[in-house]
Simulated assay, not measured.
Amino acid sequence: MSEELGNQKRALRAELRERRQNMTSTENAAATAGITRHLIDLATDLSARSISAYLSTPTEPDTRPFLNWANDNGVRTLLPISREDGLLDWTTGDGETEMEGLFGMPEAVGELLGPIAINDVDLILVPAAAVGKDGLRMGWGRGYYDKMLGSMEKCPPVYAILYDAELLDAVPREKHDQPVDGAVTPNGIVQFT
């Protein structure tokens, strides 16, 4: 990665992180309600019976109301467990129990399934710092999701979950960065492909 590109990404991530930290609880609650509604629509439209998602951190759009809906409606949900080697294991968890994983990320507690468990899902939901209008996703810099998406032979639809202001005209691109098929924001579902 060129040093200039790395600096651009770092500056953009810092700006986005600060914007998220400055959101009010009212703004967060409204965003969560919108995102939850659109995630339910997306999963329903795709007739998804099995999905992969993630447990959000306090500054990310809250995925838990959607995960509760999925659990209540018999949608099998895989949640990531970060590994030291940069790969993701998966678990179905019980929908309630959480622990702190690598890098302080919330992780579900359950039977550990290997990295290939994700190959069977109908929909993949990923976190993002920002997404460009061309569908290019910029994560938070650890590369777990780029690695996972880049290694999948037959990838189901992939949607990033983010706030409306994080849909940008463009994001800095490196060759390992993976695009997404769409984004789910408080205001709706955006398709890129």
Rank of each mutant, 00 (worst) to 15 (best):
M1A: 08
M1P: 12
S2K: 08
L5E: 06
G6V: 00
G6W: 00
Q8E: 07
Q8D: 06
K9D: 07
A11Q: 05
A14E: 13
L16N: 12
R17C: 04
R19E: 08
T26I: 13
I35C: 11
T36L: 14
H38A: 08
A43S: 12
T44M: 15
D45R: 09
S47K: 15
A48V: 02
S50W: 04
I51Q: 04
I51T: 05
A53W: 15
Y54G: 10
S56P: 15
E60C: 13
P61E: 08
F66Y: 10
L67G: 12
L67C: 14
L67Y: 13
W69F: 11
D72R: 06
L78F: 07
L79N: 07
L79R: 09
I81C: 10
S82M: 03
E84I: 01
D85S: 02
D89P: 08
W90I: 03
T92S: 02
T92M: 01
G93S: 02
G101V: 10
E107Q: 05
A108F: 01
A108W: 02
V109I: 12
G110A: 12
G110D: 15
N119L: 15
N119F: 13
L123M: 04
V126F: 00
V126E: 00
P127F: 02
A129Y: 15
A130V: 04
K133Q: 06
K133D: 01
K133P: 02
L136M: 09
G139P: 15
G141C: 00
Y145A: 07
D146A: 03
M148D: 11
M152N: 13
K154I: 13
P156T: 08
P156F: 04
P157S: 04
P157R: 06
Y163V: 02
D164P: 01
L167Y: 02
L167V: 06
L168R: 11
A170Q: 13
R173H: 05
R173I: 05
H176V: 03
D181A: 01
D181P: 08
P186F: 09
I189S: 13
I189L: 15
V190K: 05
T193E: 14
